[in-house]
Design a protein around this nucleic acid. Structure first.
Lengths: 228, 228
DNA sequence: TTTTTTACTTGATTCACGTCAAGTCACGTA
DNA sequence: TACGTGACTTGACGTGAATCAAGTAAAAAA
């Protein structure tokens, strides 16, 4: 549906760190990216491997997670088109500490360290853009850490639902973007608990559930209040 | 005990992002820092305020935490001499999302955005150093998030003890660097639980407790194993 | 010193959530 | 159509850890 150049270009345009580049530099970037496709469930990169490229999601959805010794895992990011990960690899040798898999069929763009360094020569302000991007990510992580430790599963799920619903027309039915198992991991809980809490919300008249993982929030305000 | 210049200089030397600077540039940095002192318990900066400077801890210890709606809080960083926070302020207007208080009498060095921007002109590679520093911080936060959600309080406390003990002579008695209340917040639990777990460790012969919040780990290996 | 405050300990109780287990439902396949 | 297979639901149960409450120790102030 998209040829290489078109996809790559869209991909680049979406990324905040390239926002301030001149048209010429953008062209340069576009020519340097390497496009890759992944089918649902396929591993994009694995923890412990050598990282030498920045990954940008063009189409689809990628989850980035970290495993723990006891087999549990924590979902760190849920990358949407335009989101990226692996910036650290652009500056020095690093080993990946997290893994990433495609949740749906996904296109990503890779920019190798080498290519990026060349780019940096042309456009030094890129470094500043990177710093900003990092700053935002740090903020996000700080908030996530705080949320996970100070709020209940119920609150986090309510939050998640409200946030997810926000990307659909207000009051509309929508399909949960990932299987319950992944939602569970994302919120640091189990599929069973997700199921129970959803039922609880339904019984309380806050939402309705339909076949095929579809839900409709009927009382967004109330849901938003739960996150205490 | 230290005059201004001496302290400021030590302070700068400790900071990783200034490591690659030339002697001349370092001198310049030193002249630009503004030293401040805080007594135990004093607020270094508060959430919601305007941030316009990088803060570097010279002597003492500073805790950086984030409050939640329900009154709980999450400790994000425990800054030791050489650690810093607020880098985001060096590039653009930001509002602080976290607060910081001195846990003991503390000296910090402040570098204003203005001063830093001037510095950046002289030494562009600073931006790259910043990116690296950010990368490490992100890694730290990712690990912290994962640890909090996937391991038990017992494991986290054991980890914390082993890590803290590492900065003292092996096998020596040492004083816990902060009140139990703060340790509790740091590990995402309560002072009561900390108390109980410490007793549990003591009963198991893994450590000994003494007056004045002093402890001595007697079986570090075993403690390190608990962190499952 | 005594008094007051603050930090810490310990116990009893409660509860949210994870775990285990047994379905049920939907969907693809032979 | 029957048969799997994997995703979801629901119940019963156990447990780690928060909460509530009442103390004790230690540090600061008077």
């Amino acid at each position: 549906m998209h040829n290489h150049l078109e996809t790559a270009h869209q991909c680049i345009e979406l990324v905040p760190i390239f926002k301030t580049l001149s048209v010429e530099d953008l062209k340069q970037v576009t020519s340097l990216v390497h496009e890759q496709q992944f089918t649902q469930g396929e591993t994009v990169f694995a923890a412990g491997t050598h990282a030498d490229a920045l990954m940008i999601v063009a189409h689809g959805q990628v989850k980035v997670y970290q495993g723990a010794a006891n087999g549990r895992e924590q979902l760190l990011y849920l990358l949407q088109p335009g989101d990226f990960d692996g910036e650290a690899a652009l500056f020095k040798e690093v080993t990946r500490t997290s893994s990433a898999v495609a949740l749906v069929d996904t296109n990503v763009c890779m920019i190798s360290r080498q290519a990026f360094q060349a780019l940096l020569q042309r456009a030094p302000q890129l470094a500043l853009n990177m710093v900003n991007a990092f700053g935002e990510r740090i903020n996000r992580l700080e908030r996530q850490t705080t949320a996970v430790t100070t709020t209940s599963v119920e609150g986090r799920l309510a939050d998640y639902l409200v946030e997810t619903a926000a990307s659909f027309p207000s009051g509309a039915q929508f399909t949960l973007p990932m299987p319950k198992k992944d939602i569970a991991v994302y919120l640091g809980t189990t599929p069973e608990t997700i199921s129970r809490k959803l039922k609880l919300f339904e019984d309380a008249g806050l939402l309705q559930r339909f076949a095929g993982n579809r839900v409709q929030l009927t009382d967004v305000d109330q849901l938003a209040l739960i996150s205490d």
